[in-house]
C-alpha cells in the first residue's frame, strides 16, 4: 500500500513516490496552467494592480438594469458595481422591478449627478429601451454634462444621434437582437482602465466575436457566429477618442 512521502528509490518510474519539492512544483504548475487556460479561453488579459484612472472626483456614473431573470440582474450588478465605485466619485445602480419602475429613482439620481459633476456617464443595461425620453426632460445646460452613454438594448443603435443631439459626447449601441453582455464585459474592463472608446469598442467587438466562434465550435447547430456578430457588433457615434479621464 502507498505510504508516506519519500524520495524516489525504485528503478521503475511508475512505482516511485514524488519528492515534496517536485510535488509542490507540479501542483503550482497545474494551478498556473489552469488559470492561464481560463484567460486563454476568455481571450482576455489580466489587469494586475490597475490604478484608478485620474480625474475620478470629476465624474459620476448611473447604471440602470431592467427587469430580467434574477440571475441576470444579480450578475449585472455584481460585475458592474465595483467598476463604478472604483472609477467614479459617485455612482447609482438602479434595478427595475418592472418596466418603467425605475423612472423616479433614475431621474432623481441623474439630477443629483448632473448638478454635482461635470462628467456623467450612463450605462443602460436593459433590453430595447427608451430611457432617452427620461433624459429629455432635463434642461439643456444639464444634459450637456452627460458625457458617454452605453446602451445594451437590442435595436438601440439608431438612438446614437439623438443622444448626441441631447448633449452627450459619445454613444455606443448595438444594431439588432444583440448578445451585448459578451461585449459589455470587455468594454467596461478596458474603458475604465484608460482605453479610448474606439479602442475599447474594437477590443470588445473582437473578443465578443471570439466567444461567438467558440460557441459555434461547441454547438454549430445552435450558434452561428457570423449571424450573431451581425446582430451584436457595437458601434460608436460621437467622440471615439474619449478616455475615462477626459473632461468635457
Amino acid at each position: 500500500m502507498d505510504g508516506k512521502a519519500t524520495t524516489g528509490v525504485s528503478h521503475d518510474a511508475g512505482l516511485r513516490y514524488m519528492s515534496r519539492r517536485r510535488a509542490l512544483a507540479v501542483t503550482f504548475m497545474l494551478a498556473a496552467l489552469t488559470n492561464a487556460l481560463v484567460f486563454a479561453f476568455l481571450g482576455d488579459t489580466p489587469f494586475v494592480f490597475a490604478r484608478t484612472t485620474p480625474g475620478r472626483s470629476e465624474r459620476a456614473a448611473l447604471a440602470i438594469r431592467d427587469r430580467e431573470h434574477p440571475f441576470v440582474q444579480w450578475g449585472s450588478r455584481l460585475f458592474t458595481e465595483r467598476y463604478l465605485s472604483k472609477y467614479y466619485a459617485e455612482y447609482w445602480y438602479i434595478t427595475e422591478t418592472r418596466r418603467g419602475a425605475g423612472k423616479e429613482a433614475f431621474t432623481k439620481a441623474l439630477k443629483h449627478a448632473l448638478d454635482a459633476y461635470p462628467n456623467v456617464d450612463l450605462y443602460l443595461l436593459a433590453h430595447t429601451n427608451e430611457y432617452i425620453d427620461w433624459v429629455r426632460s432635463f434642461p439643456e445646460s444639464s444634459r450637456r454634462r452627460v458625457r458617454f452613454v452605453y446602451n445594451t438594448g437590442c435595436f438601440n443603435e439608431p438612438q446614437g444621434p439623438d443622444w448626441l443631439a441631447l448633449g452627450a459626447e459619445s454613444y455606443i449601441g448595438h444594431p439588432g437582437q444583440s448578445e451585448s453582455p459578451y461585449f459589455y464585459v470587455f468594454l467596461l474592463r478596458y474603458w475604465t482602465r484608460g482605453a479610448t472608446l474606439a479602442e475599447a469598442l474594437e477590443i470588445g467587438n473582437r473578443r465578443m466575436e471570439r466567444i461567438f466562434r467558440q460557441l459555434e465550435f461547441a454547438s454549430p447547430k445552435r450558434f452561428n457566429a457570423k449571424a450573431l456578430m451581425h446582430e451584436s457588433v457595437a458601434s460608436c457615434v460621437g467622440n471615439g477618442t474619449l478616455r475615462l479621464e477626459d473632461m468635457q
Binding site: D2, A5, G14, Y17, A23, T27
Partner: peptide
C-alpha cells in the same frame, strides 16, 4: 485542489 494534488503526488506511487 492544492492539498489533494500535493498529497496524492507525495503519498502515492506515480502510477496511481
Amino acid at each position: 485542489c492544492y492539498f489533494a494534488s500535493y498529497l496524492l503526488l507525495t503519498r502515492s506511487r506515480r502510477l496511481v
